[in-house]
Amino acid sequence: MRFLRNYWGHLLVPGLAFAYGAFALWELTTGQFREATIIYTYVIAIPMLILGVISLVVDLRRRDAATGSEEQEAGERAGAEEPDAPGGARRVFWVVAASIVLILVLPYVGYVIGFFLYVLALLWAVELRNWVAAFIIAVIMTAVVHFVFAGLLGQDLPIGPLTFLES
């Protein structure tokens, strides 16, 4: 558990790849597929799994080797180039959550209401507290989606309760 708590971030990408790789191999092995398809997938999945383990081991050893001031240097090598502003993870969570909620409610509220509220939510998430500016940006972006994507380019966006947009 302690291992997972300390290294969860480093485990995420290889973990995802391993899970998908395992699923792909399991599906091919248990399903009815041609031999060529199975071989092709194995040829890709096996090196991926091996390289994933190597990357993970290198990453963890690098992290373990880093202590005190060295840890900061290693952190920089591992991608954290700049120290994050406080509340960064929370802001990321809200942006992702707002995006997922938008996708889920879009069929019901329609793109006009949906994108308007989405832009407001994002501006709130990034801590822009000038509500007049936020309102203007939300109106402009909704108008862009309406006139450019739905109007000019004919994208088939869900209109929700605003049925008059159908024409």
């Binding site: 990034v126 801590e127 940006i137 972006m141």
Partner: peptide
């Protein structure tokens, strides 16, 4: 801060 929602809408 203003660009975040603009880029996000374009991404979506």
């Amino acid at each position: 801060k203003m660009m975040v929602p603009i880029i996000s809408v374009f991404c979506l």
